[in-house]
């Protein structure tokens, strides 16, 4: 059962990433694109966790945690840049 569930989940997350990429290309504004990049980060870290279950290994955990942290910092930095036109005040 878990094998099929994982395959379905892989499919759903890949479709989600595909829709994100459409939104990334269509825009229309910069905040939209930043939001989409944030969503892409979160979806890919979920894919990494699923891959960890698939291969039965905990090694992907650190990578997923790092993606979560870097994704957050990146989103904040980009949003701050849009707000101020400057990163460090």
């Amino acid at each position: 059962m878990l094998v099929y569930a994982l395959q379905v989940a892989f499919g759903l997350f890949s479709l989600a990433l595909l829709m994100n990429i459409i939104r990334l290309i269509r825009g229309p504004s910069l905040p939209d694109r930043i939001l989409t990049l944030d969503t892409i980060y979160i979806n890919s870290l979920a894919l990494l966790i699923l891959l960890g279950i698939w291969h039965d290994t905990a090694f992907y955990f650190e990578a997923a945690l790092l993606i979560a942290m870097l994704g957050f910092i990146g989103t904040i930095a980009a949003a701050k840049f849009l707000l101020r036109g400057d990163l460090i005040e």
Binding site: Y4, A9, L15, A16, S29, L35, N43
Partner: peptide, 27 residues
């Protein structure tokens, strides 16, 4: 069964989230 349930539920929510990102009208 329990693990499959949670994974499918999570994946469906993430899918709907991205669908919303694509479909909703304004930022």
């Amino acid at each position: 069964w329990v693990i499959s349930f949670f994974i499918i539920l999570g994946a469906s929510f993430a899918f709907i989230g991205s669908l919303g990102l694509l479909r909703l009208p304004d930022f």
